[in-house]
Computed example of a mutant assay.
Amino acid sequence: MSLKGKVGTEIEIKSPPEKYYNIFKSQAYHVPNAAPNHIQGVDVHEGDWETHGSIKIWKYTAEGESGVFKEKVELDDANRSVTLVGIEGDVMKDYKTFKPIYQVVPKGIGSLAKLSIEYEKLREDVPAPNKYVTLMVNITKDLDAHIMKA
């Protein structure tokens, strides 16, 4: 059994791809306001809100459990993709590598959000991080509603 894997899903959203991508690229501080049931806070640890390589600390709730996730952001403007490379936090107790990826592509009058997590488990008995994909879906739905209200 392989310890490495990738899980993910795609969901259609009404937001224009640029607006959705820009929240993650340069306005992540809006996420707790848009998705308060899922994200309770985000702070810049090193760098700033919009620079590739900046480090942020997220406070989240997944399936009723609170957690902290420290990540280094990788931005890909050409593909409207944001990768949050896990450095520390609760998920790192079970995973050697943990990389949530938010990508958005134009689809009709809205967008298609491609949400995935690349991971490597520390042990065979660790489940795939499906609950975190669900968290990403919930955040995306809340962000979409927030963007469309603005």
Rank of each mutant, 00 (worst) to 15 (best):
L122V: 06
G47R: 08
A113K: 05
V82H: 02
H52G: 09
G41K: 12
D43E: 15
S111F: 02
E74H: 14
H52P: 10
E63G: 10
L122K: 14
D77C: 10
V44E: 10
E63D: 15
S111D: 05
E65C: 09
W49S: 10
G67T: 05
K70H: 10
T97F: 01
Q40L: 06
L75V: 15
V73A: 11
Q40E: 03
T61G: 09
Y119P: 00
D94R: 12
T97I: 06
I117K: 04
K72R: 15
E88K: 12
A62H: 04
K107M: 00
S66H: 14
G67K: 07
I57F: 00
V85F: 01
E63C: 11
V42Q: 11
N79I: 01
E71A: 10
V73W: 04
N79A: 07
I39K: 05
V82E: 08
K59R: 15
R80N: 11
S111N: 03
I101V: 12
I57R: 13
A78V: 13
W58C: 06
G108A: 11
D76P: 04
D77E: 14
H45T: 12
F69Q: 12
E120Y: 08
G86M: 07
S66C: 10
S66G: 14
N79D: 03
K96R: 13
K93P: 00
I87C: 04
E46Q: 13
G108N: 10
D76H: 12
M92L: 13
A113I: 06
D48C: 09
V82G: 03
K121D: 04
M92S: 03
Q40V: 00
V91L: 13
S54P: 03
Y60G: 09
K96M: 09
G53Q: 12
K96L: 10
I109Y: 11
G41F: 06
L115A: 01
P100V: 05
L122Q: 10
A113E: 02
A113C: 03
G108P: 04
G67N: 09
V42R: 12
E50T: 13
Y119K: 06
T51E: 06
V85D: 01
